[in-house]
Design a protein around this nucleic acid. Structure first.
Length: 822
DNA sequence: AATATGGTCATTTTT
DNA sequence: TGACCATATT
């Protein structure tokens, strides 16, 4: 008889109605190809799904989960599904819900980091950590390391915050903590000893602040499970089916975590669980063990692009060895892209040796050719993209179905300049994030200081923000007092009177301490809430934030400032308040710590709003896992893709090729490859060469609107032979020297497109309240004279549709376009 | 303690 | 180029 247990159900368990019905869940396998069907229906200890790009792996995963539940082989609460981003998790949850309805409640579908935070907050006590621990992001890490390096004078030995940060991160991803490192350190090497001291201090400071960095979230969870088998057993018992997406991008710590979670629970521990009232009935095998959870991993080693973050391709390559009895299913049929796109992808990736051959194919036909374009400059390239996007849009492609990818965030500048001018609705995903702005970090630091009073970093940040006359000297005085009296920084602030400082400074410190105390008091739940273990009666996050930014004077300081940028900053803080309101509304009963966790763990891709009507701009890394009708891959140049920095790293060029492969395979119907002949690196204009990867795509797949060879021929500075025959000589591209570029630009006719593209400046014009209406004639610095045909939009976003006499139809932002009314 | 100024610096991808 | 830091000035 099959017993089914719902660990979250107080009733605990019940007998299944009957053995699993034949045919139950068959609607979940209808319409799947044989491999997909096998992956959904496989039952056993371990399953590896090798899923090529676009092969419907999300479909397989969601159907597999739904199938497990519908056939009554698992309760939702016994499922743990790990995805790469929160957005992917949300999407998976939605799709399972669509298949199952309400019976999907109670599953854990989240990222590695979110799942670990959830476990760690619950079990914080075992680790001697506050359950309100702060999560430090890389900027926080850097701040702390900067201080440590300065105090140790380690910079003289060549240590930089960034260097130490990446070294610490690597160690933690390998599950090496300070003591492990200390044991293996070469004591004759002063470099190593200094690093050990940095690592020690760093670890100590985080501990004192009750803070964890991103890598700790995973590593500490593994330590927790290893040190406390009973705690581990709770989760091992609970999760009977564990599914991991993007397995090729897991690092050693994440791999170990999965290993711990899929361990069987030994009989003696089962007995202990039983004694403590944990339900184990129906879960044990005949030896009294709870068998290890069934593990499903999905991955594609061709899409491994996070080696720099410790991702270990061996995790997927050696899966069968690590999990004996594993079944392997290969998904090669692609349901996303046209054959031309897939052929290009296949051709590129086949240049990576040391991989299992895998060829993507589709039954849907060749589709359009890939479009290639070589601009003279990055602006020229951007203009081509903007024009093509407009053309696609006129053909009925929605803006949200279009994406522009690039290797480095710095490449957004030229794209944004042109897009703004062309009045193209776009959104940069990731990059300089909202939460990285100084004023937002300030406001967040107030919240953190309230949630985790031990967090000295947050306290120091707000100590003199807004300016209240507390300088470095005062800060040190408080820190010293805290140390001498064995108090926390926060407690020392309450004793400001004993510091022997001036009345003004003392008052400022006390005032700040009071504001924080008031906010903390607002967060205490009512007696009823405390009794019930809920957050009932506690103030909402938004109310606490409003209290803090108002009483601390932060918002007033920004509003009353004479710095014009502070107006925007104040608006940003208001936006943060609005976001906390949304959070309160969407998560009733959630705590401040819940909010802070959510903010800490947002990924770039999480920001994408599928409903928005904008073109998405993002890095190739962020693009992983996404798909668009039309994709623009930009800056396909040597030095950029592959990136210069990757050249020296082992496996670097191969990983860059995978990055290119990932980009190509995001496109459903239209793929554009573009590059520029010259690129501004920092102030300086540098010559760019076409990427080696371009040559790996068969000629006949690309329709060059302007090939590298053609672009070179324009100035007549290249040997004739290079442009004698187009196609065979495509790779003559690239200017020989800076001189060539200079000559090139003076020889061109002043009216060509590239001429004005070069003139685009970084400064933003402001036409004030210039008003235009249909029929007006205007003059544009680049396009010449034209007539306004229509005006749309509101306020600063008013757009003039202009028919230029020579340059054709254009859309211009009235406020900033370089135009004048005639 | 707060601001202004000039000089130096590095520039990959991110949960 | 622009972010960041150290120094000089108020």
């Amino acid at each position: 008889m099959t017993l089914i247990l719902d660990p979250d159900d107080p009733a605990g368990w019940r007998e299944a109605d009957a053995p699993v019905r034949d045919g139950a869940g068959s609607r979940l396998t209808d319409g799947l190809n044989p491999q997909q069907k096998a992956a959904v229906e496989y039952r056993g200890p371990a399953l590896l799904i090798v899923a090529g790009a676009g092969s419907g792996k999300t479909r397989v995963l969601t159907h597999r989960i739904a199938h497990l539940i519908e056939t009554r082989e698992a309760w939702p609460s016994q499922i743990l599904a790990i995805t790469f981003t929160n957005k992917a998790a949300a999407e998976m949850r939605e799709r399972v819900q669509a298949l199952l309805g309400d019976s999907a409640q109670g599953m854990w579908i989240s990222t590695f980091h979110s799942a670990c935070v959830r476990i760690l907050r619950r079990e914080a006590e075992s680790l001697g950590l506050s359950s309100t621990f702060t999560i430090y992001d890389s900027a926080d890490q850097r701040t702390i390391l900067k201080r440590i390096i300065k105090e140790l004078n380690a910079d003289t030995m060549g240590f930089t915050p960034a260097g130490a940060q990446s070294k610490i991160s690597k160690l933690k991803n390998e599950l090496a903590d300070v003591e492990t490192y200390a044991r293996n350190v070469n004591t004759n090497d002063p470099q190593e000893l200094t690093f050990l001291e940095i690592f020690r201090q760093y670890t100590r400071r985080l501990r004192e602040a009750s803070a964890l960095d991103f890598d700790d979230l995973i590593a500490e969870t593994v330590y927790l499970f290893r040190a406390f088998p009973k705690v581990a057993a709770l989760y091992q018992r609970r999760f009977r089916h564990i599914l991991v997406d993007e397995y090729q991008d897991t690092n050693h710590a994440q791999y170990s975590l999965i290993h711990e979670l899929t361990r069987p629970v030994e009989p003696e521990i089962v007995a202990e669980l039983d004694q403590h009232g944990v339900l184990v009935r129906g879960l044990t095998d005949r030896n009294g063990r709870i068998p290890g959870a069934s593990l499903t991993v999905v991955g594609d080693s061709d899409q491994s692009i996070y080696a720099f973050r410790g991702a270990d391709i061996r995790n997927i390559a050696e899966f069968e060895r690590d999990f004996p009895g594993a079944e392997v299913v290969l998904l090669e049929q692609n349901y996303r892209s046209t054959q031309n796109i897939l052929s290009a992808a296949n051709a590129v990736i086949s240049n990576n040796f040391d991989r299992k051959d895998k060829k993507l194919w589709t039954a849907d036909g060749d589709g359009d050719k890939i479009v290639g374009y070589t601009g003279y400059t990055a602006h020229d390239e951007a203009q081509f993209i903007a024009d093509e996007i407009e053309a696609l849009h006129r053909d009925g492609v929605a803006y949200r179905d279009i994406a522009v990818f690039y290797r480095t965030n710095a490449q957004t500048r030229a794209l944004e300049e042109i897009f703004v001018r062309s009045a193209l609705p776009y959104r940069v995903v990731g990059g300089t994030k909202f939460y990285e702005r100084a004023e937002i970090k300030d406001a967040m630091a107030y919240l953190i200081a309230v949630a985790n009073p031990l967090d000295e970093l947050a306290l120091r940040r707000i100590l003199n923000t807004p300016k209240r006359g507390i300088g470095p000297a005062t800060e040190t005085a408080i820190a010293n007092y805290a140390e001498q009296n064995e108090l926390s920084f926060r407690q020392a602030m309450r004793h400001a009177g004993s510091l022997g400082l001036g009345p003004k400074v003392t008052g400022a410190i006390t005032a700040l301490a009071d504001v924080l105390d008031e906010a903390a008091a607002m967060l205490v739940p009512s007696q009823a809430g405390i009794d019930a273990g809920t957050n009932e009666g506690a103030a909402k996050v938004s109310d606490v934030l409003v209290h803090l930014v108002q009483r601390s004077g932060l918002i007033d300081a920004l509003r009353n400032s004479r710095d014009p940028q502070d107006e925007t900053r104040a608006e940003n803080v208001d936006e943060l308040v609005a976001q906390t309101r949304d959070f309160d509304r969407e998560n009733p009963g959630a705590t401040l710590v819940d909010f802070l966790t959510q903010v800490s763990l947002v990924a770039a891709a999480d920001e994408i709003d599928d409903e928005s009507g904008t073109v998405s701009l993002m890095t190739l890394h962020t693009a992983k896992g996404l798909e668009y009708h039309a994709v623009f891959l930009t800056g396909i140049e040597e030095g950029l893709l592959p990136h210069q920095m990757s050249a020296s790293e082992p496996g670097g060029p191969a990983e860059e090729r995978r990055l290119f492969y990932v980009g190509i395979t995001r496109a459903r119907k239209r793929l554009y490859l573009s590059l520029a002949m010259s690129r501004a690196q920092f102030g300086e204009v540098a010559v760019a060469m076409p990427s080696r990867y371009l040559q790996e795509i068969p000629d006949e797949l690309i329709d060059w609107k302007q090939s590298p060879g053609m672009a070179t021929s324009r100035g007549g500075t290249q040997p004739r032979a290079l442009n004698a025959r187009r196609g065979s000589e495509r790779w003559g591209g690239g200017f020989e020297s800076r001189r060539d570029l200079d000559r090139f630009s003076v020889t061109r006719a002043p009216t060509t497109k590239t001429e004005w593209a070069n003139k685009v400046t970084g400064t933003v014009r402001d036409n004030g309240d210039l008003t235009l209406e249909a029929g007006d004639r205007i003059r544009h610095t680049d396009f010449g004279e034209g007539r306004v045909t229509q005006v749309t939009g509101e306020g600063t976003k008013r757009i003039a549709h202009v028919a230029f006499d020579t340059a054709g139809q254009k859309k211009l932002l009235i406020k900033i376009a370089p135009i004048e009314k005639l």
